[in-house]
Structures are given as C-alpha cells and as structure tokens.
C-alpha cells in the first residue's frame, strides 16, 4: 500500500554549508512510505578540506544509502513515523594531499603531493528515528545510527582520512545523529485522528 513519498535533506549538512567553510556536503534523502515499511534512500556529494600549518588534505566524492525501515506507529494519526531500520551504503571518492616538509630551523625542505583517485568504501548502518509532520506536510525528525563494517579499497601511498557519508575512515564503527527536514508527498488521503478512533 503506497501512502506517499518523502523528499528532503539533512540539516547537519545545511549547517556545515553555512558555518564550516572547510566542509561542503549536499544530500537528498527520503523514503517511500508503504505504511508499515519505509524504503529509504539517500544520495550525497561531499568535499572535505582539512588545512594545517604544513598541509592541505582534500576529499571529494559521492555516496548512496538504501535500506528498509519498519514504522511502529503506522496506524496512528497522520503520516508520522517511529522506526528502526538498516542501510547499505557505498561511496566512491578521491583524496589528495599537499605537504610541506620543514627543516629544523623552520625553512622549507621540500614540497610533495599525493593523490588517490579510485578509492571506494562500503558499510552498513543500523538506526532508530522519528519523523513528524510539523506543518503542512513538512516533516522533521532525527535518527540515531551506528555505522559499521567500513571497508576501504584503493589506498596506495595516501591513506584515506574521511569517507563521504561515513565519517572518519579509520573508525570501525561510528555513532551519528542526523536531523532531517522533508516534504511529504501524499499519494492517498491523509489518515486523520477521527479515522483511527472507534465510532461511538
């Protein structure tokens, strides 16, 4: 039973765009509401730039996530959701490093660059979350997720520091909070409180 489609983005990344000049990440996400089940998706692109006194490290890439959520309040009012779910995620990205080697007196000894263009990674996410219709089909919510089994391939002379969509590359598992704002496109008439209340 197809109820509707949510389309939106992650507020974390909007905040980064506004307040963190070294991180730019765009993500479109949502789900297909099948009443009790939600088929979830996300696609994003990311650019991370880490600058130190002697280096500039950049990561560029994209990622997608897909999975299934189970909604425990599908029979209650509105199209709200309290759910648990599982995701498979995959990322393809590149990393580059410009590094300056200094002598003991602080003068520049040499400058070197490294680049890895065919890095890839996959991982899984287990999550719980809620989505609430706050106003006129605008849904807000959050998820608490654990990302795990991160596997990276393609590393040669430069080790990956961050994986787009995952986070710190060397972490075996990560806990994350994500905040979403989404628009709900209903395919059927919205459930009302009266409809779910037994008649007298």
């Amino acid at each position: 039973m197809l109820n509707g489609l949510r389309v939106g983005t992650d507020l974390n990344y909007v905040g980064n765009l506004l307040f963190n000049e070294n991180v730019s990440q765009y993500e479109i996400n949502g789900d297909l509401d099948l009443n009790r089940y939600l088929i979830s998706y996300a696609y994003g692109i990311a650019n991370y730039q880490r600058i130190g006194e002697t280096f500039t490290y950049q990561t560029n890439g994209s990622y997608f996530k897909a999975g299934l959520d189970v909604n425990f309040i599908n029979n209650l009012e509105g199209n709200n959701a309290v759910f648990v779910g599982l995701r498979y995620a995959q990322s393809g990205f590149s990393a580059s490093l410009d590094r300056v080697f200094l002598n003991e007196d602080g003068s520049v000894d040499q400058m070197s660059s490294w680049e890895e263009n065919d890095l890839s990674s996959f991982w899984f996410e287990g999550l719980v979350g809620i989505k609430v219709d706050v106003w006129q089909n605008i849904h807000m919510g959050f998820t608490v997720s654990n990302r795990f089994l991160n596997s990276i391939s393609g590393e040669d002379d430069l080790l990956a520091y961050e994986v787009p969509g995952f986070g710190h590359a060397e972490a075996g598992s990560l806990w994350r909070f994500n905040y979403t704002i989404q628009y709900y496109i209903p395919f059927r008439k919205q459930k009302s409180p009266e409809a779910s209340t037994p008649s007298q």
Partner: peptide
C-alpha cells in the same frame, strides 16, 4: 617498504606510515 601518508587529525598533523 612502502611509505604511506596518514592524516592523524587536522589539529595534529600528518605522519608517515
């Protein structure tokens, strides 16, 4: 052996593995 560049943390810098 191979030398690999590793970013420890943006505030900490790099190391060679």
């Amino acid at each position: 052996y191979n030398r690999k560049q590793r970013l420890i943390h943006p505030d900490c810098g790099l190391e060679t593995v």
